[in-house]
Design a protein around this nucleic acid. Structure first.
Length: 560
RNA sequence: UGACCCAUGGUGUAAUUGGCAACACAUCGGUUUUUGGUACCGACAUUCUAGGUUCGAGUCCUAGUGGGUCAACCA
């Protein structure tokens, strides 16, 4: 991109650059990320975060973090903390600009009075049902409320009483006086304030009336002098109201624009549905590695840079979309290939006895940590008469093009010797319990002048110098790419019963005994695995981040 | 029977704003390889349809078609 003469811009960048050119707001760019603290951030929020913070970075502007906390029934301080942690983890910084819509309650209340004074808002005592009835439908106009022409004085009186707690929950609301015949349902005298006796996570019981989204969001943008207020497509209809309120209130003209939400295969991003997964115990929590939450992806070992690269590749448009999961996984592998040290871990150990290797003898072998590093570093492996390989790396009767261990075959042990498979031992069920091999003494890695060929190279761990570890193998939480897009079918019907497989008896090379939680390793020939935060020196636990590409397995799968 | 938004390979985006449809992922095939990983090479499109304007249309105009959104005292 840097080498191009021009740089392709998305539609939001074009809008901003036009504003910059025309000198709007003195060339200032100020965005905001406005989560409601009623749940954890997910991959979809990452798009909004990257957009808002990214734009500010690009155009030398600022980004506010603002909690849209106008519904005390669902919001909690714990969510505030989790959200802040996730944004920081992604690598963004709102500096000292941490705001809350609830901080503006007094100002919003004053705005409401201003609207009443201008004859643009009224107090209504219709029930929710009556109001819905009078609202009409998208194709038929609504009818005016009998209270629509209440006098300004009476409206002020009633609204003040609402605030003072003189009326019951739900008995009165404040509505904007717009147009009951508007083709935009949102303009049919939308509710601005409702009475709700509920303890707010910040303002406690100070208020018993709370502003609705439409009377808080745009006004907060305006108060903070946000220049570009970016939200997802479903808020397009709100834009008319957004503008109407700003004009009526004669406040700072923030501008709202909408982009399409990101949908990723096998993931859902409805907070309600995610919450249900948590409360019904389909997952262990918001941060379960199978969740599309940022905390879940973190626990799964996804590097934040990978997520940012992914968002970057996905782009910014107004189209409906369904992104291949493989693109996300590509970004994760791309990053981890650079970052992760390679280690030997055998998930399903099969004992191999090297018959011509002296009993009781061991030797130390040098292993490269990461072939991608410019400055190579090494660690040591312990090799001996007994080692373990992965069970799937041995077959009694292999198919064509199987390069791994089989009777009478040669196979290379990575960083060690070439082995020749002499025989195997079966138990009473016909299961292979161990394999006997001999090794070619002059085939030691780096010193091999034997000319002996081996088609395959296997990872392994020595019986001596290995530790048992626990490994969580995660797969997609759902069996369907769009679990919540099937009419008449609940998304829970698509829960993958095999989304977690726990392996207790995996064997890892000794260096992993003291692996630090949060570190991601590449298990050679297997995949990327992160050390779980719960790991101790007594028990090391790994979570599978993503498997390595496996063209052999793919070919086999296609055959069957 | 409305209003608004959208339509480019399997997927997601580009196209210097009317001038040779490009990139990434995926898929398939190949080369290299002491990871069946990585890296590298190759293959993969009548730009939703029909008309129109133009020397020239993915881009502009008209009419269709298809998809999405909107009737919470949620955000």
């Amino acid at each position: 991109m840097e080498n191009k003469e021009y740089e392709s811009k998305n539609f939001i960048e074009e809008i901003i650059e036009e504003d910059l050119k025309s000198g709007k707001h003195g060339g200032r760019v100020h965005t905001r990320f406005p989560p409601e603290p009623n749940g954890f951030l997910h991959i979809g929020h990452a798009k909004a975060i990257c957009l808002n913070f990214g734009l500010a970075e690009k155009y030398n502007g600022k980004t506010n973090l603002r909690f849209d906390d106008t519904n005390p029934a669902t919001e909690e301080t714990a969510y505030v903390e989790a959200i802040k942690k996730d944004i920081k983890w992604l690598g963004f910084d709102w500096e000292d600009r941490e705001y809350y819509a609830s901080d503006y309650f007094p100002q919003l209340y004053a705005f409401a009075h201003k609207l009443i004074d201008k004859g643009l808002a009224y107090v209504d005592d219709l029930t929710a049902e009556q109001m819905a009835e009078q609202k009409g439908t998208p194709t038929t106009p609504g009818v005016n409320s009998p209270n629509r022409d209440r006098s300004i004085e009476e409206n002020k009186q009633l609204f003040t009483e609402m605030k003072e707690g003189k009326h019951a929950d739900g008995s009165l609301v404040l509505r904007a006086k717009v147009d009951m015949a508007s083709p935009n349902m949102l303009m049919r005298d939308p509710i601005l304030y409702r009475i709700k006796r509920e303890t707010h996570h910040r303002t406690g019981d100070d208020w018993c009336i709370y502003p609705m989204y439409d009377f808080a969001h745009g006004q907060s943008d305006s108060i903070e002098e946000i220049t570009h207020s970016l939200c997802s497509l479903e808020f397009r209809h709100h834009r008319d109201l957004y503008d109407w309120l700003i004009q009526s209130l004669e406040i700072f003209p923030s501008m709202q624009r909408e982009f399409s939400r990101m949908n990723v295969e096998y993931m859902i991003t409805s907070k309600r549905k995610l919450l249900k997964l948590v409360t019904e115990g389909h997952v262990t929590g918001w941060d379960d590695p199978r969740m599309p939450t940022l905390s879940g992806l973190r626990k799964k070992g996804y590097p934040p840079v990978a997520i940012r690269n992914f968002i970057d590749k996905v782009g910014m448009t107004k189209r409906e979309n369904l992104i291949d999961l493989s693109l996300l996984e590509f970004c994760v592998r791309e990053e981890l290939n650079k970052q992760a040290d390679r280690v030997n871990v055998v998930l399903d150990p099969l004992k191999v006895v090297i018959t011509n290797y002296p009993e009781g003898q061991t030797e130390t072998l040098k292993a490269l940590n990461n072939p991608e590093d410019e400055e190579p570093t090494y660690r040591e492996l312990t090799f001996g008469r007994e080692i373990y390989i992965d069970r799937k790396d041995f077959m009694i009767d292999p198919p064509k093009k199987y390069f791994r261990m089989a009777p009478e075959r040669n196979v290379r042990l990575k960083y060690a010797y070439i082995l020749n498979c002499e025989k195997y031992v079966l138990d009473e069920n016909g299961k292979v319990t161990e394999v006997h091999c001999s090794y070619y003494t002059n085939t030691k890695s780096g010193e091999d002048n034997s000319g002996i060929k081996a088609k395959g190279t296997l990872h392994w761990v020595g019986a001596e110098g290995s530790v048992q570890v626990k490994v969580n193998l995660y797969e997609n939480l759902f069996t369907d790419p769009t679990p919540d897009a099937h009419e008449g079918k609940d998304y829970l019907e698509f829960i993958n019963p095999d989304s977690l497989q726990v392996i207790d008896g995996a064997l890892a090379e000794a260096s992993l005994a003291s692996a630090a939680p949060g570190t991601v390793f590449q298990f050679m020939r297997t995949g990327y695995f992160v050390v779980d935060e719960s790991s101790t020196t007594d028990e090391v636990v790994f979570n599978r981040t993503v498997s390595l590409k496996d063209s052999w397995a793919k070919k086999q799968a296609k055959k069957s």
